[in-house]
Simulated assay, not measured.
Amino acid sequence: MPFGVEKALQRGARRYPMTSKRGHNYYKGTGSGAMGWHTKKGGYKIDLKKVRTYVVPDLSDCKVTI
């Protein structure tokens, strides 16, 4: 009886990267969200509130040293 428990512990102790092929009811995705919606005529409307915007600081006074 203890051998079955040890096998289960060894099997669960493996640490592999989670992929969409491993696990049940798991979808990894790409990390990107929907930026709009599909129209009835096959187009795509972009919602500007959902579009990612990146704020870049002003680096004109930054001194880069190598």
Rank of each mutant, 00 (worst) to 15 (best):
M1Q: 04
G4P: 00
V5N: 03
V5G: 02
E6Y: 08
A8W: 02
G12K: 09
G12F: 05
A13G: 13
R14K: 12
Y16G: 07
Y16Q: 15
P17H: 07
P17N: 09
P17C: 05
T19V: 12
S20T: 15
S20R: 05
K21M: 10
K21L: 11
R22G: 06
G23D: 09
G23N: 09
H24Y: 12
H24E: 14
N25R: 13
Y27A: 12
K28L: 13
G29M: 06
G29K: 07
T30M: 07
S32P: 00
M35P: 00
M35I: 15
M35H: 02
M35S: 05
G36W: 01
W37T: 04
H38S: 02
T39K: 06
K40Y: 04
K40G: 11
K41C: 03
K41A: 13
K41R: 10
G43C: 03
G43I: 02
G43W: 02
Y44E: 02
K45E: 00
I46Q: 01
D47S: 08
L48K: 11
K49S: 11
K50H: 09
V51P: 03
R52M: 10
R52I: 12
T53L: 12
Y54K: 12
P57F: 09
P57G: 12
D58Q: 10
K63G: 03
V64S: 08
I66Y: 15
